[in-house]
Design a protein around this nucleic acid. Structure first.
Lengths: 345, 345
DNA sequence: GGCGCTCGTGATTGCGCAATCATGATGTCG
DNA sequence: CGACATCATGATTGCGCAATCACGAGCGCC
């Protein structure tokens, strides 16, 4: 038995059905099959049916990789977020998913854990998939990241906060304004010695923006300002409880605590309940995000609702619009926020 | 000015740096650049450095699409889950992400919303990306889906529950056993007229398995059995509270309610607190999942911890192992569960 | 000192599809 | 009724990369 002389470039035959096989079976050219599947309107009903039949008979599965290479664009939308532990990003992703899925796109998910080096790595990798566009959480990136994206030149949406100079499009809310609104509310309610409490506010700079908005508002109202209470571990309800206990040992003890997010704030309310700390009698508590559970604890949590699902949806819609018809006139959407006052303040 | 005669197949030049450009700049052949980037160990240190330099100078970004086409395999791991609203799946995804990211793979995410037609569509689409493997939540699929995957022939891990006849590998826990364990616990505590309460247990068949395990255990202990209380909307804490109120109007009222998940159960405890319903005095409450918040409410929620992050991690590790060295001997891993008894029962 | 070995590098080829242009059939209008 | 537009379909080509095989240099070994 002679060894078969293999030519350079020869390789194992994977033997899955390809366009060509479908075409032969349907008695048409490969390109017609391609059109019947991707642009059915361009093909007569008769051929379309024959192609469909052949596809079913062969169990043909389109090779997206080859399609993407040939067209220099693939039906994926990369989404880069800083965390999946935070329900906010999960819900935003769901909003994105709703929209892009309907348009036939798939989500490529990258999680940076609030690390800008990792963000750069994700984006660089994702660009190698020839996506038609890109969705990023946040408007802060390394200069090289920004340069990479700008050179690339396709539509980009930065979501979550409205930023000073977005790369392309931007959908979010002003976290500074949200912080200021909460400061105003707490002062109007007569609370004094207001304290901001959060986790990793250097990395989670949106929390930092809320603090600065809060702090500036205190200054403008002539109220006492104090440094934020922070921890360098991820947010969790249990931690919110711990921070409550710690805060109450400060001198002077805070009359109200504005937590960076609802996870922490809900944890504080539950802890207060366990330990018999009167809320808002001894200390008022407020949060940010408007998670469902904020309305179920006792007392109900005063919080600011961020329309995160809408952010995802609108961001995705703007991206798809830009992909189809080129960049739009409105580059920035401020979706705003809503203060919900409940028993905790 | 004459129009340039374009040959068939000619197209716009996208003018981004390619392997060839890097190769010219580094003074080596394109294949050496490919190796320097993908299999650095095969290339001498000298050439490796020259290639790295050229890559940086040109801002070269690897075209993953072309690589995937040439190698018939792409560095993505598709993950298909039934829901993102449920924290369980999000945490499982995080576990998967941790592992596959370290190995250089990216996550392609598909959400079926508990719809098996949509599951088939996702999987079919995903196979077109030539992934080296696949992770699916659940062991129930349409026959055509199973056939599609089996014909495809690459490693697959089904996660969440241990199933009767997995396609390939399987990592999860026995939800029937978990339900039975909770029945035993509630009976031991002296509760009677036990009720199971859940949402969409036809679609969320794992919740159904918990109910059946629960119900069979009641039968085996000679305790009273009753049909589950169900709702055909997604789970939420608010709904758990509503279902508590409804359950207490039943005749006879339940002495304990085993909720299909912690979201519902936590909502029930919060509602009981608001309305002054004694837990566990008037009714005991138990959940499933072991979310963090279950330990923070008052009373603490008795629940069963599902090691979901571990499921994700182990599932991903098994998949990567199978991708590298072929399918392993151990096809099924039962990660078990843990009953946490707290004040609510 | 010649044989075979490993190691690093290069030349050739094709992965499966869609973009482009070409063509034939049909319709449209003055 | 003929010139031309419109439509559906096909032929050719290349997207950018990695698999395969080829080959030469350096090495150890009997």
């Amino acid at each position: 038995m002679k060894t078969v002389p293999r030519m350079p470039g020869a390789r194992e035959v994977p033997s899955a059905a390809t366009l060509k096989h479908v075409a032969e079976r349907a008695g048409v050219s490969p390109i017609t099959v391609s059109r019947a599947l991707n642009k059915p309107a361009m093909v007569s009903a008769d051929l379309r049916d024959r192609v469909r039949l052949a596809v079913d008979e062969l169990g043909y599965v389109q090779n997206r990789v080859a399609g993407a290479l040939a067209s220099a664009s693939s039906p994926v939308i990369p989404v880069v977020v800083p965390s999946l532990s935070n329900a906010v990003f999960v819900e935003t992703i769901q909003g994105i998913q709703e929209v892009v899925q309907r348009a036939g796109f798939q989500l490529l998910l990258g999680n940076t854990e609030y690390d800008l080096d990792r963000e750069h790595a994700w984006i660089s990798t994702f660009l190698g998939w020839s996506p038609p566009g890109l969705i990023l959480a946040g408007t802060r990136h390394q200069p090289r990241t920004r340069a990479l994206i700008e050179r690339w030149g396709r539509p980009v949406v930065e979501i979550m906060e409205v930023g000073a100079k977005p790369i392309d499009m931007n959908v979010g809310l002003s976290h500074g304004a949200a912080g200021a609104a909460m400061a105003r509310h707490l002062l109007e309610r007569g609370h004094a010695n207001l304290l901001f409490a959060g986790c990793r506010i250097a990395e989670d700079y949106r929390a930092g923006q809320r603090f600065r908005g809060f702090d500036r508002a205190l200054a403008s109202f002539g109220a006492a300002r104090r440094p934020p209470l922070t921890r360098n571990v991820p947010s969790s309800p249990a931690l919110g409880g711990d921070m409550l206990v710690e805060a109450l040992r400060l001198d002077p003890p805070p009359g109200a605590i504005f937590y960076a997010n609802d996870d922490l704030a809900v944890g504080a309310i539950l802890r207060a309940q366990r330990e018999g700390i009167a809320v808002p009698g001894r200390v008022a508590i407020a949060g940010f995000n408007g998670l469902d559970i904020s309305g179920l604890v006792t007392p109900g949590l005063t919080t600011i609702v961020s329309p995160r699902r809408a952010i995802g949806r609108i961001g995705a819609e703007k991206l798809l619009g830009a992909i189809e018809v080129g960049s739009p006139k409105v580059r920035r959407v401020d979706v705003g926020f809503e203060l919900i006052v409940r028993g905790s303040t």
